[in-house]
């Protein structure tokens, strides 16, 4: 039985196709304004990779910000559950997932069976989200993928303190004007983001075995800064792309559902 998981976020769309618990293919693309469009397109990308058509898919679970708008889903699940499920399946020792998405950051704690025990979202403002990094990358004219490697070259410690994404952008621009190095500014941004996210995770109590999911997890700068801010070593997800974790979890839900219905 072939199933799929589709995760439509505010910045990116992801799809995973799975057969009997094995991933056949996955796809990631930048989200369009309308989630339905993103869903169709990203699903097609994954299908093409697996050389399948929509007719081959027995069940689809949708998740993410635009989950209600995915035209072809059979069921929707929250990102909280999907990321937890995906991470737990990838690495059964995981007890906490920190997911930095486009609009929000979330920390989720799981019990020994992988069930969600507690979770928390970022407070009101959007600082501490993927959007924060995106705006900054734009302001600094640095490609999103290069943020991590660039920040690694930092030599001077700077700090960015503004809570508001928009105002933080101004702060960044003034640092540029002061002639500060881009690498140092980026490093400061990563630490600022990491500290905000760390306080989220801590408020629901961090133990050990923490992983990071979502696209931002691929940014080594944030990854390391978060480890530092939490005071524990973040675990890498056994070589699985952390960005597809939500879609993977959704696919796992689809798999379960199919097994139940057998």
């Amino acid at each position: 039985m072939i199933v799929a998981g589709c995760d439509i976020g505010s910045l990116t769309a992801k799809a995973v196709i799975m057969e009997n618990g094995n991933v056949l293919s996955d796809a990631i693309m930048r989200a369009k304004t309308r989630p339905a469009e993103s869903a169709n397109e990203v699903m097609q990308m994954a299908l093409d990779k697996a050389k399948l058509t929509m007719d081959d898919i027995g069940y689809v679970v949708g998740t993410g910000y635009g989950r209600e708008q995915i035209p072809f889903v059979d069921q929707v699940e929250s990102e909280i559950s999907c990321h937890a499920k995906g991470a737990f399946k990838t690495m059964p020792s995981v007890r906490m997932v920190i997911d930095i998405g486009g609009q929000d950051a979330k920390a989720t704690r799981m019990d020994d069976n992988g069930n969600v025990a507690r979770y928390i979202y970022n407070d009101k403002c959007a600082a501490g989200t993927g959007r924060f990094l995106e705006v900054m990358a734009e302001a600094l004219e640095v490609p999103l993928e290069e943020l991590g490697s660039l920040a690694a070259k930092s030599t001077e410690k700077l700090s960015i303190s503004n809570q508001c994404v928009i105002f933080a952008e101004t702060e960044v621009v003034s640092l540029v004007n002061e002639g500060k190095e881009i690498a140092d500014i980026l490093n400061a941004l990563h630490h600022s983001l990491a500290k905000r996210v760390a306080s989220l995770a801590r408020s629901i109590e961090v133990k050990t075995n923490v992983v990071m999911t979502g696209g931002v997890a691929k940014n080594s700068g944030v990854f390391n800064a978060l480890s530092e801010a939490l005071g524990i070593e973040l675990k890498a997800l056994n070589g699985v792309d952390p960005q597809i974790m939500g879609a993977l979890g959704a696919a796992l839900y689809a798999q379960e559902k199919k097994e139940l219905n057998k």
């Binding site: 505010s10 959007a126 989200t129 994404v165 928009i166």
Partner: peptide, 9 residues
């Protein structure tokens, strides 16, 4: 309307 980014959502 309290936060630009949230309003965007």
């Amino acid at each position: 309307s309290t936060c630009t980014v949230w309003a965007q959502a």
